[in-house]
Design a protein around this nucleic acid. Structure first.
Length: 910
RNA sequence: GCCCGAAUGGCGGAAUUGGUAGACGCGCUGGACUCAAAAUCCAGUGUCCCUUAAAGACGUGCCGGUUCGAUCCCGGCUUUGGGCACCA
């Protein structure tokens, strides 16, 4: 029987499905292991070869863990709510659900062909009401909770209400609370609810007609669609993620994530320890204390002006009568700008004098107060003290508006630029004079606190997440408005299902699409018309997989305590500051309220690299329909044209296919080199427009899924981005064929029950040892190499004793072939349920001669000696080493001397 | 501008993290089988010197350092990928 991958793969995929081979359930007799892929958004374009990279990696790991006796949870689902389906719906009128379901079916078909061991009975779809019931439930819990800074965790809002009634909380006294109307009480609680409705400056995207979260905006453009985004004050639902900033930062240390990803999250959370200092201000004779935030109190003697953010509430109070018009004009100007314009103009400095003055609390000096967009309203207090000598932004501002620059560090030159470094000795700084800057920072903080001028304060850049989207295709908020007061829908009435509407466009008066829904009410009151953003559904999906059909809870306590959290999470870095922050926040929140038992959702995370496309080009001679091969193109004036990579093989163009590709090339002529047309190439993003998309289905057709799996892993380390290049695919395909031939020669079954030779056992066990090591480290490419070496070492070995374990070792990589051979070997159960072969080190010991001698140095030496040298000769050789060596060896002894074939001795010293 | 990471043959990439650099695969060259091709198998394949071989020299982006010994450690560059960017 030849290796007929098509027949084999179809057979086993069918069998896995009908027999439920990959179905798992809680089994307390086995240790659990949870392997998760970031579930995909099912786009209309289908999968390309880049998508399965991570899926294959995690699949191999899952299969390996199962062989090692773990009960492995390896589920898959779809992040099915999202903008593209809705955009498509607006254009075509087709319901987003219809396109989404169609795309899901297509994804499933493509995924199934690759032979993943997903337990599909646990599939989740975020757009399924049975699923989003629990997204809405979590939102209600957040609405019904507040973050208690004393306990550093979320607590039921009832506890806050009790506080308000008895002792009061912050600036709300029990008397105020008792006297408050229902509406006022709602407003008060809104200040602390974890999910809250609040007015803030949001990223408004006109092109998409919705607001966006910070991570959905890049360079002032929407990540989806690339439309400009502007700042707008709007009342939106938000999640108080910022209250978790400290915990999100701290527990990062306990995670096995890559350093670079942790660093990204650290930067995004942006902890900065500084001081809040109160400056008294004077405006038209009125006094007003203003709090500013600084990380460099030590530079306070160098303050020459203060700056307010244009959006700051202080602007009105600190604008002098005489400056009103100028300030108003400036603020209006700034507001008009989009985020993108602000970024583009980073280098230009703008601002206006407010006409008021601040009093330096240490020097009593009076400094002018300015307003400038370089100060952000959303960070710190929206007001700063400016020290132009030691802050480059303040410096640029001072230069532009002719404000004084006072250096306070000895010997620094501020004639050209500011001196931002935290080094040197202080001067012009009263009691700080002569101190080293780093010492001065602490001294100044202490001084400010001791004299009641300010207090230490830790600020985070992490903002609350804006949670409303003015869209249709998302989870409806379980919130209704009773006389304008937001009220939660009863838990028992969940899910609050998405209503049918006639058009998916925003309504004529600019309201979200849900405003079009008939009878969008609850208990006779209007329901919220925004929907939740994409990250809502993806924030807790890993919990739902543990118990996907539970109608009573997001996840039962029993299932959660068994599966706990994700042991291995595989996905791209693009979610570093979005999904991976929100998920952690969401999980911590549920943890605080006791719904889940782990504080962190993803213990270990591996980022697979991106697979880029490898585009091919042909070169048309300008003005003709003649195409010149790459090597000769410099002799002509040519234009570069992308050519479909499906008609190019190893950079050689299939001329007939090219002529048939497009009508205008039908009568193309060619200038060949050595009788062939060689195409140029470049690495680019894989996309339709560059004709470089490789569909995994095509690879499965030509080579089979097992080859695809093996090849994607053989390409290089999974974390690395690399271009897709089919050049080497024949190599792994050959490997599989060779593997097959150990069992079959055409129809001849070759396997015999003979005893394996020492050399064969050695080859086998070397591979077993290597596979354990490599798969644990997800170093699949080197493991496949080891497989190839083992095969060539085994030569014509057809012994069952060797081949049976070999099939098990192959099964994570090429499951279809492994199953087929496993069955042929007479097994009636799946190879998945085989045990991983036991590694016996004794078989693999190298030919190295080891001399047990004692030594306690810390060096290694190289000496020339015949392999047959006796211990005495080795000793003598060591004694003859260079002077330094001899010296170190004096009176000590050697641990291990290895004679490597090739007459060289390594004396390994521990 | 700031913060990470990377750089090794014609190509993708190995190297027990200080001890035989270039595993494995691709490609290429030659050979076997074949009427021929495909498939398969065998041998060779870092560079230079050389008719060839032996032998040798050089060789992990560049310059320098530590070391008996550096792809690996240290200092200074260059190129490149990614992230952040008025966060006081």
């Amino acid at each position: 029987m030849d290796y007929d991958f098509k027949k084999i793969e179809r057979k086993w995929q069918e069998k896995w499905r009908s027999e439920g081979t990959y179905k798992v359930s809680e089994d307390s007799s086995k240790p659990k292991f949870y392997v998760l892929d970031m579930f995909p958004y099912p786009s209309g374009a289908g999968l390309h070869v880049g998508h399965p990279l991570g899926y294959i990696a995690s699949d191999i790991y899952s299969r390996y863990k199962r062989l090692r006796g773990f009960n492995v949870l390896h589920p898959m689902g779809y992040d099915a709510f999202g903008l593209p389906a809705e955009q498509y719906a607006i254009q075509t009128g087709q319901h987003p659900e219809v396109t989404t379901m169609k795309n899901i079916a297509r994804y499933r078909e493509q995924l199934d062909r690759i032979g993943f061991c997903y337990d599909w009975s646990r599939e989740v779809r975020t757009c399924d009401p049975e699923y989003y019931k629990w997204t809405q439930w979590a939102f209600l819990k957040m609405f019904g909770s507040w973050f208690d800074p004393a306990q550093n965790k979320a607590r039921p809002i009832e506890e806050l209400i009790a506080k308000l009634e008895t002792t009061g909380y912050e600036d709300v006294t029990p008397e105020m609370w008792a006297a408050a109307s229902e509406k006022e009480k709602s407003d008060i609680l809104m200040r602390w609810r974890i999910a809250y409705l609040g007015e803030t400056s949001v990223n408004w995207c006109e092109g998409l007609g919705t607001v966006l979260a910070n991570d959905e905006v890049k360079d002032g453009l929407s990540v989806r669609g690339g439309f400009p985004v502007e700042q707008k004050k709007m009342k939106q639902w938000q999640l108080r993620v910022s209250t978790y900033a400290g915990r999100l930062l701290e527990s990062l240390d306990s995670l096995s994530w890559t350093d670079s990803l942790k660093e990204m999250q650290r930067n995004w959370i942006g902890k900065s320890e500084g001081t809040e200092v109160v400056f008294n201000t004077v405006c038209d004779g009125r006094e007003l204390p203003v709090t500013i935030f600084t990380t460099r109190v030590d530079t306070i003697f160098g303050v020459t002006f203060m700056v307010l953010a244009p959006e700051s509430e202080l602007v009105d109070q600190l604008t002098a009568e005489s400056r009103k018009d100028a300030v108003a004009a400036y603020v209006k100007e700034v507001r008009k700008k989009t985020e993108r314009e602000r970024i583009a103009e980073t280098k230009s400095v703008t601002g206006v004098f407010a006409g008021s003055y601040g009093i330096n609390p240490l020097t009593g000096e009076k400094v002018p107060i300015w307003i400038s967009e370089y100060v952000l309203a959303g960070y710190g207090t929206g007001a700063i003290m400016a020290v132009p000598a030691h802050d480059s932004r303040d410096y640029a501002f001072a230069k532009k508006f002719g404000l004084p620059i006072v250096p306070i560090i000895e010997g620094c030159d501020v004639s050209e630029q500011s001196f931002d470094a935290k080094e040197g000795k202080m001067c012009n700084s009263g009691f700080l004079n002569g101190m080293d800057v780093k010492v001065a920072i602490e001294a100044a903080k202490d001084y400010a606190e001791a004299h009641g001028l300010g207090r230490r304060k830790t600020n985070y850049r992490l903002r609350d997440a804006i949670f409303s989207r003015q869209r249709y295709w998302g989870e409806p908020f379980p919130i209704y408005y009773k006389d304008g007061i937001p009220m939660p829908v009863d838990e028992k009435d969940l899910p609050l299902t998405l209503p049918e509407i006639e058009s998916f466009k925003p309504s004529a008066n600019g309201e979200p699409p849900l405003a079009r829904a008939k009878d969008w009410t609850y208990k006779g009151y209007p329901l919220e018309t925004s929907t939740m953003p994409g990250f809502a559904g993806s924030s807790a999906y890993y919990l739902r997989y543990m118990d996907p059909h539970n109608g009573e809870a997001l996840v039962s306590r029993k299932a959660n305590e068994y599966w706990r959290n994700v042991d291995l999470y595989v996905g791209g870095t693009e979610h570093a500051t979005g999904h991976l922050i929100y998920s952690r926040f969401w999980n911590k929140f549920l943890f605080d309220l006791g719904y889940v038992c782990c504080d962190e959702p993803f213990a270990k995370l591996v980022n697979q690299g991106m697979i880029q496309g490898r585009s091919n080009f042909v070169y048309r001679i300008v003005g003709t329909n003649k195409f010149v091969s790459l090597g000769l193109k410099d002799q002509y004036e040519t234009t570069e044209i992308h050519v479909d990579i499906n008609i190019v093989r190893n950079d050689k163009l299939d001329l007939d296919a090219f002529k048939a590709w497009r009508p205008e090339f039908a009568d193309a002529e060619f200038v060949l080199e050595n009788g062939e047309y060689i195409c140029g190439w470049a690495v680019e993003k894989m996309s339709k427009s560059m004709y470089n998309v490789v569909n995994p289905d095509d690879i499965c057709d030509t080579y089979g899924a097992d080859t695809l799996r093996l090849y994607e892993m053989f390409l290089g380390p999974i974390e690395q981005s690399k271009p897709w290049d089919t050049k080497g695919i024949d190599g792994v395909n050959r490997f599989l064929k060779k593997f097959w031939r150990l069992f079959y020669d055409r129809d001849q079954w070759l396997v015999v029950d003979e005893k394996a030779s020492p050399a064969e056992l050695k080859a086998l066990h070397k591979l077993i040892g290597k596979e354990q090591e490599d798969i644990e480290a997800m170093s699949y490419n080197t493991n496949i190499s080891a497989f190839m070496i083992a095969l060539s070492e085994l030569g014509e070995c057809h012994k069952r004793e060797v081949l049976e374990p070999l099939v098990v070792l192959l099964s994570p990589f090429a499951p279809h072939m492994a199953e087929e051979l496993w069955e042929a070997l007479g097994h009636t159960t799946s190879v998945c349920d085989a045990a991983f072969p036991e590694y016996v080190e004794a078989y693999t010991v190298e030919d190295n001669v080891t001399y047990p001698v004692q030594f306690n140095g810390k060096m290694r030496f190289t000496v020339d000696l015949p392999k047959s040298a006796s211990p005495a000769e080795v000793e003598a050789a060591v004694r003859a080493l260079p002077q330094t060596a001899k010296y170190v060896l004096e009176g000590q002894s050697i641990v291990k001397v290895i004679v490597v074939p090739g007459r060289i001795i390594n004396i390994v010293v521990k």
